[in-house]
Nucleic acid binder design. Structure first.
Length: 414
DNA sequence: CCTCCACAGGAAGCGCAGGAGT
DNA sequence: ACTCCTGCGCTTCCTGTGGAGG
């Protein structure tokens, strides 16, 4: 499997424009989202005229186009001349507290703003005077808003800011992939955030087909992708909850596979292989982003459930659950054997709540059949897969080899 | 019925990092 | 250089809770 750098510069026989297949690519026209784009624009237009816009809450599962639509609208606004609105796009996975969000807004717009040393109140006042000084209209886009730890405080602070300011204003656009998150929100922040509610339903397989074939046209060389592949990709992604991002990932992976095999075409076989790899890649990205302690906890759960957990089962007969307390013990011994500090059980429970919120684990109250008040926990992903991923990233090569032992897998690129 | 188990999750506080003010 | 703040990760201590065991 020799591979020189030349291959990187040689023109691809498969792809015409790889960019088109990336999840960050925003097409000229977003299919099946005209209504949503229109609604976002309606909510935002007052801001462009110097009046306060309406807050919007956007929700829908991953890969339904929420972020893409939002970025599309932001691009449109940026192209308009003479517009007063200032935009802050905030990824709440990174800026996950009131302090960090306010701090991000300030550093986005106020020059020479230092990141630390100011308290919340200082930042608040700086932000307000900046907005007031020219009657600015700030649009704060909070992507993955459900991850913010003290969201109620943040929303309160921002609404408070709106009433404190003599001129200018702040519009909040919240984006979340959980519709249920609405329920555990303070009623006051709820009414603020939900001035406008906007749902992004999953794409059905016909819509996915249209999206896929659209990208095939501009992303691949003509005639490379077998027509049957378009529906196949769409069908796979539709089954997995209508995720367009997954569809595109499968598509580009299939292209890469054909390229590696020096094929001239992309056929159903490549698509099926790609589908398997794409799923793994998505899990990999998600898990690799976790902080070390959470990785260790997830690893403990994966190890315990990899061969099914002979333990507790829920009424529905699912047997892959483990008890919270047992996970903690396992986590503690794993951490210790790796020479890492073992965190307190209280902090562990915080991590569990966090992982649950991120949808990486599923946890339920133990209910009948278990002594005491505890939680039954399972992974939202395939245990064996998760175990492999973490072993690769957590241990150094030698330890990983020793641990992996007999189950050898071919090395993955990158 | 009471007691105990095995946790859940709130409250308070501690040490640290790192900027501001002097 | 120093003191003063503030946020953050973390621990300690605590009260609450649902079901099992006696």
């Amino acid at each position: 499997m020799e591979r020189g750098f030349e291959s990187l510069f040689r023109e691809s026989e498969i792809f015409a424009n790889r960019e088109v297949l990336s999840p960050h690519y925003i097409p000229e026209h977003l299919l099946f989202r005209d209504r949503q784009i229109q609604e976002i624009e309606n909510a935002v237009t007052p801001s462009l005229r110097g009046e306060r816009g309406r807050n919007v809450f956007i929700y829908g599962q991953t890969g339904t186009g929420k972020t893409s639509c939002m970025k599309y609208v932001v691009e449109q606004i940026k192209r308009l001349p003479m517009v007063k609105a200032e935009i802050s796009y905030i990824n709440c996975r990174v800026y996950n507290s009131r302090y960090r969000v306010l701090s991000k807004i300030a550093s986005d717009h106020i020059p020479l703003y230092a990141k630390r040393g100011y308290g919340v109140i200082d930042i608040y006042e700086k932000m307000i005077s900046w907005v007031e000084e020219e009657g600015r209209m700030l649009i704060a886009i909070l992507d993955e808003i459900d991850i913010i730890k003290d969201l109620d405080d943040l929303v309160y602070t921002l609404t408070r800011a709106n009433s404190d300011m003599k001129s200018g204003g702040i519009t909040i656009i919240g984006i979340s992939n959980k519709a249920s998150f609405k329920e555990d929100l303070d009623p006051r922040s709820l009414s603020t955030l939900y001035e406008n509610e906007l749902a992004f339903p999953p794409y059905d397989s016909q819509e996915l087909s249209a999206i896929v074939s659209d990208r095939v046209k501009s992303g691949f060389k003509p005639g490379v992708v077998d027509p049957s592949c378009i529906n196949l990709v769409a069908a796979i992604a539709a089954k997995e909850s209508g995720d367009a991002r997954l569809a595109l990932k499968i598509l580009s992976r299939a292209g890469e596979i054909s390229e590696e095999k020096s094929l001239k075409r992309v056929g159903p076989e490549e698509v099926r292989t790609a589908a398997k790899q794409a799923e793994e890649e998505i899990a990999y990205e998600l898990i690799n982003m976790l902080p070390e302690n959470e990785k260790l906890i997830v690893y403990a759960i994966a190890v315990m459930t990899v061969n099914g957990s002979r333990y507790k089962r829920l009424s529905d007969g699912d047997d892959s659950f483990v008890l919270s307390g047992e996970i903690y013990n396992r986590y503690a011994s794993i951490a210790e054997s790796l020479g890492k500090g073992v965190k307190s059980s209280r902090l562990y429970r915080r991590y569990i709540a966090d992982l649950n919120m991120q949808g990486i684990i599923l946890s339920y109250e133990s209910g009948k059949g278990v002594r005491g008040h505890t939680k039954l926990i399972k992974l939202a992903y395939n245990s064996a897969r998760v175990k492999n991923i973490i072993e690769k990233s957590l241990f150094n090569e030698k330890e990983a080899e020793a641990k992996a032992g007999e189950n050898v897998q071919e090395p993955k690129e990158e």
